[in-house]
Computed example of a mutant assay.
Amino acid sequence: MKWFGLSRVRAVKEKIDWNSPTPKHIAIMMDGNGRWAKRRGLPRSAGHYAGMQTMRETINMCHRNGIDSLTLYAFSTENWKRPKDEVDYIISLVGEFVQDTNVQELNENNIRVFFIGDISRFPEETQEAMRKVVGLTYNNSGLKIFFAMNYGGRSDILQAARSMLETNKGKEITEEEFERFLYTGQNPCPDLLIRTSGEKRLSNFLLWQSAHTELWFTDEMWPDFSEELFYQSILDYQNRKKRA
């Protein structure tokens, strides 16, 4: 069965023309952890833990395939409405991700980490863990990972507008100037946005930045997101560009 799975991955990957345009910036809505766990009779925390393992595998896939940037919707502004024990567990995973072994792997792969969103609402120890991994990967020049934490597209646009008006009083407002004040800053907008779990909406994620982004959906829950699906999303993106 493992060999059959690998053969399917290889079959999809070989269809991709790596000399033609491929997405340089991929954004992912890692949706369905809780439902994945519920279907297996497991606590929702088990789904979030499994999702973190899939996230690490996906980061490595992006690194191996020369993706420039990866933005992950890790914790939305709406996630605070979930039960406190679930919120606390999701937040605790940040500290687990910043373990020395994970940071060592990031540095070995030349991966740089950023956090976007209003992180001031998180506990101080969580904020410190975020600052730690940002600092330890600061000099890396390979894949850039943007973890969207306490992030919402509307609040991003609102804070950018406030900052721009405060900084550029009396100056002309342009799209290019406005984008400098978004949490994503000078990073290019995503070429491809992937959402798992069968939902087909943006759910307040990168609303400004996704104006011209190709959207790709799968019914698979995030913990089941696979290498085959990763390559399928790139192949579909490339086929759309060829038809354009």
Results as ranks from 00 to 15, higher is better:
V113H: 05
E124Y: 00
M1K: 09
R243V: 11
R201Q: 13
D156G: 07
A37V: 03
L192F: 11
I194G: 08
I145Q: 03
F225H: 06
Y237L: 05
E179C: 11
Q53H: 10
E175F: 01
T126M: 02
N79S: 10
S197L: 08
K81P: 01
Q53V: 13
E166W: 00
K24P: 00
T196I: 09
E125F: 13
Y231D: 04
P190V: 13
R44G: 01
M55I: 05
L235I: 02
A129W: 07
T213W: 12
V87S: 05
L93K: 05
N204F: 10
A74T: 15
E86R: 04
V94I: 15
V12Q: 04
Y73H: 13
Q53W: 02
I90A: 03
E228S: 01
N204H: 09
N102H: 14
T167F: 04
A50N: 14
G117C: 09
R40M: 12
G95M: 06
E220T: 10
T54H: 05
E124I: 08
W208M: 04
E128K: 14
P123N: 07
R201L: 09
I111P: 02
W208C: 05
D17E: 15
G135I: 06
T101G: 03
Y138A: 15
I173F: 12
D118S: 11
E14P: 00
D85A: 13
N79F: 08
D224S: 15
M30V: 12
F225D: 04
L42S: 03
I67Y: 06
S7V: 10
I119Q: 13
T137Q: 02
M130F: 13
I91S: 01
R240S: 02
G41W: 08
S163V: 00
S163A: 14
E176Y: 03
H63M: 02
W3P: 01
A74W: 07
R162P: 00
E177L: 15
I28K: 05
K24W: 00
I119K: 09
P43R: 10
N140A: 05
V98Y: 01
A11V: 00
E227N: 03
V113T: 11
P23N: 04
N187K: 11
M130H: 03
K200C: 12
E78V: 05
V12H: 01
E176C: 00
T101A: 11
V103L: 12
E108T: 10
G142F: 06
E78D: 15
A50W: 10
G135N: 13
N150G: 01
Y138T: 08
V134M: 13
